[in-house]
Amino acid sequence: MQNKIIKKVIKKDKIKNWINELMKNYKVIAPVKEGDEDVFFRIIKSADDVCMDFQNTVLSPKEFFFPKSEKIFEFEGDEISDSGSKIGRKRILFGARPCDVHGLTILDNVYKGEFNDPYYLQRRENTTIISLACSEPDENCFCKSLGTGPVLCDADIIITDLGDRYFIEAKTDDVNLVNFDIIKEAAPGDVELKDIKQKESEDKITRAIELNKNLDDLHLEAESRKCLGCGCCTYICPTCTCFDVSDESMISKQKGKRFRCWDSCMFPSFALLAGGENTREEKSDRFKQRFYHKFKYYPEKYGKVMCVGCGRCTRKCPVNTDVVKIINYNKLDCNY
């Protein structure tokens, strides 16, 4: 059946009531402010904790689908027990920005395929996404050039700030999530205003990545010189998928667990073979790999780039490496 879009509105002061309704049947993951200005996704205990006023969260919601660390199995003596992939309560990811929702569709390609990653895919299937459109994208955002935008995305429900109320667009499959007294039918004026707000927000995004350029090895090498080789850019990236698998055990090795955890192609150990040979020995090799993977290899395989334009890596790089500048670099601009 074709999914029709249901259009509704909710007063801002009723948002908490809505979240409370959702919490009755779902585990809700939502943005929570910690400290002065940082907003993180957390499993909320109360709708009062939800923060609706933020540019974007420090970390993408990736970790709720692909956790920093997760157990694969436990073992004792000579037996293992599959304790990893259990389906929990149904979840709602509330307030994810469109870029981050786009990021999940990029992860999907990797974790699906000839082999399915049960941990990721079960969480994904078990989670309904309510996206919060951006009204104040910042100067590092460039989502518009990557096929989405501050409003458009592949979420189940998208809500847009209209000033004193939010506009809600929901697929009919999720009608039960918006069927509450506090949520009213949208008036034609609301639809119009939503389009205006969307346009305003889109116009605020001034940066764009140019995808028709070839990567320039010499330029990447020059840029890599200041790179500290930390994993910050890859760990805060909503599309980075790499992980390590490791065993942890008591000294006796009789009891322990296997887990997987985030890993970064920026670390020297990433391509280190057991015999001591390192297939990406130099920092510049590792630095290049990140850009080639995102902007060449992944697109060759899946038809789109492995970047959503959230701007996190540029915002957070301790030495201000700028992804847009690197990709848009034109040989003519440079005097290397």
């Binding site: 500290l228 930390c230 910050c232 760990y235 805060i236 985030w262 301790p318």
Partner: peptide
């Protein structure tokens, strides 16, 4: 605890 829970082990603190 609250602070360390946030740590993603990117090692930026060490590398810088």
């Amino acid at each position: 605890n609250k602070q360390f829970e946030k740590c993603i082990k990117c090692h930026a603190c060490r590398n810088i």
